[in-house]
Structures are given as C-alpha cells and as structure tokens.
Simulated assay, not measured.
Amino acid sequence: MSFKTILSVVGAKDAVSDISKAIELSTELDAHLSILAIGTALPPIASDYPVATAWIEQRQAEINALLEVRQNGEDMCRSNGVSFDTDYLYDDRFILESNLSMRALYADLVLLGDGARHDSDIRKAVVAGTVFDAHVPLLLAPAKGKSSLRPKNVLLAWNSRAEAARAAKEALHMLIEADAVHVVIVDPDSSYFKNGGEPGADIAAFLARHGVKVVVEQVASGERSVEVVLRQHALEIGCDMIVMGAYGHSRLRERVFGGVTASILEDCEFPVFFAR
C-alpha cells in the first residue's frame, strides 16, 4: 500500500519547518496533504475578574496563533502545487485525542514534525489518538536532515512481538523498495517464547518472500539501554529510517509508554516509522 493521504499534525511552534517537511514528503509521493494545527487549551480558571480576563485573552492569542499557522499552511501548499486541506483544533488533550483518532481513520500516515513533537502534550495526544486508538502508522520527522518515504537503508527494530510485526507489515512497501533492511535484535533470547532458536530468522524469511533485501543483525547491549543501542547502530550503518513497533501500558496509566518508545518519541535524529 502506498501513502496517498498524509495527515500532518503541527503546533504553533516551528510550524513553518514542520509544514515544509510535510510538503516535501507529499510531493515525493504525489499524495494529498491534510494539515491539522492543534493546541492544548488552557484549563478554565475560577478566580477574580482580572485573572479571568487574562485567561480569556491568552486562550484567544493561542487560537489566533493556530489560525495563522493554518493560513501559512494554505499559502505554502498553494505555492508548491500540493493537493491539500487544512484545519485547526484547540481543546483539552483528551478531546484532541478523540478528534485525532477520527481524522486519522482517513489517512494512510500521520506525520509529526520536530516542532510539534517537542510539545509533550501534543506528542502524547498524537501518539495516543493515532497509533494506539486509530492504529494508523506515525512518522516522526527530525528537524535536521532529509526525511523520505522511499528510504534506501532501513533499520527494523525486532523483538518478536506483535507490535514489531505490525510495524514491518505497515512499512512493507517501503522495505521492498529499500536497498537494504537491517533486522536488528538487541540481546536476543533463543528460548521458544522469546526470539526462537535462530533469532530473526522467521521475520527475515517472511520479508525475503516479499523481495526485501534483508540481513539479520544480533547486537549486544553491553548494559546500555535498548534505545541507545538502536540509535548507535542506526548511526553506524547509516540508515535513513528506523521502523519499530510502539509499546504501551494500560489506559489506567494514561498510556505511559515503555522506555524504548518514550525515549525515541522524545528525541531521535533519524526519521522513525511507528505502528502498533
């Protein structure tokens, strides 16, 4: 499946850079671009009149900033000849999640640029609403370097879990076109209920049947965290995309993501394709 509709979620900060990345990726695939500018609404304040007035004014200022982002997005898309639509949302985080989930149903891919990614409320709302609720893949595009949906050298983070398999299948058309796909297993466990007798062999065989040029790489952590190992290995092999599953806990814990997912979400110098 190719990506024909990309939903780009941007905030008020560094929006021009995020929109530029989205336009580049949409142009690369001749895809339709939906730009959604979002902001987390200030909670109501029950206080004296002057404070309440300041609260209302600040809310309006934040809405105006999103409207400006939306207008900039429209202007940039028109000047680049991109098929597009734009909208904005300003509400509390959980309503944002619900709206993002609904909108993601009509997209092949959700894009989160570096500016919006570093707003923790936006980041959490986007991941929860799209990857976890709508089960739509998410691409994190770093500020530096070129992001591409036609990567040539891919690192597939593998741990023999359903989420990792889902990510591989969602990214399959990209993996097929890549020059090399590195299936990377950190501290493999050859027991039956872990990675199997030959860790990585099963997913490598599956991918090879689809024509993927795949190599399995078993990496020892040396007591480093998994996310540090993945970043370092990605740098060593010169990959231009990391593909991985997203992992999380129950809704009762507000979807507190597992350590690897959380760390990669917060900061990674490579484009990261998440699915669950």
Rank of each mutant, 00 (worst) to 15 (best):
140 L>G: 03
128 A>Y: 13
271 P>V: 01
151 P>S: 07
111 L>Q: 02
96 L>H: 08
217 E>S: 00
61 A>K: 11
49 Y>C: 08
254 E>Y: 11
170 E>G: 04
211 G>C: 06
234 A>C: 14
198 E>S: 05
120 S>M: 14
146 K>S: 09
103 R>D: 14
81 G>C: 02
137 P>F: 02
179 D>K: 06
43 P>S: 12
237 I>Y: 09
130 T>Y: 11
266 E>W: 09
19 I>F: 03
25 L>W: 01
260 V>D: 04
194 K>T: 04
49 Y>I: 10
174 M>I: 05
81 G>K: 00
31 A>M: 01
146 K>C: 13
151 P>C: 07
156 L>H: 02
144 K>F: 12
274 F>W: 14
266 E>Q: 15
108 D>V: 11
98 S>N: 11
119 D>E: 09
229 V>R: 04
42 L>I: 12
149 L>R: 01
127 V>H: 00
195 N>H: 01
190 S>R: 02
114 D>Y: 03
14 D>R: 04
268 C>T: 09
247 Y>H: 08
1 M>C: 07
39 G>D: 15
251 R>L: 14
46 A>M: 12
255 R>Y: 15
11 G>F: 11
265 L>A: 04
27 T>M: 11
121 D>S: 15
220 A>C: 03
72 N>H: 15
181 V>L: 12
19 I>R: 00
172 L>W: 07
150 R>C: 04
213 K>A: 04
89 L>M: 14
176 I>F: 10
36 L>T: 09
59 R>Y: 07
174 M>E: 03
10 V>H: 05
51 V>E: 14
124 K>R: 12
187 D>P: 03
268 C>I: 09
256 V>I: 15
73 G>Q: 01
76 M>N: 03
184 V>L: 07
68 E>M: 12
96 L>D: 11
239 C>P: 00
86 T>V: 08
203 I>K: 06
193 F>G: 05
205 A>F: 02
106 Y>V: 09
60 Q>M: 09
203 I>C: 07
256 V>M: 13
50 P>W: 15
242 I>A: 02
196 G>N: 00
30 D>I: 08
166 R>H: 09
172 L>Q: 06
38 I>Y: 12
180 A>P: 00
225 S>F: 12
177 E>M: 06
243 V>S: 03
240 D>Y: 10
149 L>M: 00
94 F>E: 08
166 R>C: 07
9 V>E: 04
103 R>S: 10
272 V>L: 10
165 A>H: 05
8 S>T: 01
187 D>F: 00
253 R>S: 15
257 F>T: 03
14 D>Q: 04
273 F>S: 06
97 E>M: 10
127 V>R: 03
66 L>V: 15
47 S>E: 13
116 A>Y: 09
261 T>W: 06
94 F>P: 02
69 V>N: 06
194 K>D: 08
99 N>F: 15
267 D>N: 05
119 D>V: 05
155 L>F: 09
94 F>N: 06
243 V>D: 00
43 P>F: 13
195 N>M: 03
125 A>E: 10
32 H>E: 09
160 S>W: 06
82 V>Y: 02
103 R>Q: 15
169 K>C: 04
38 I>Q: 12
107 A>Q: 13
241 M>F: 02
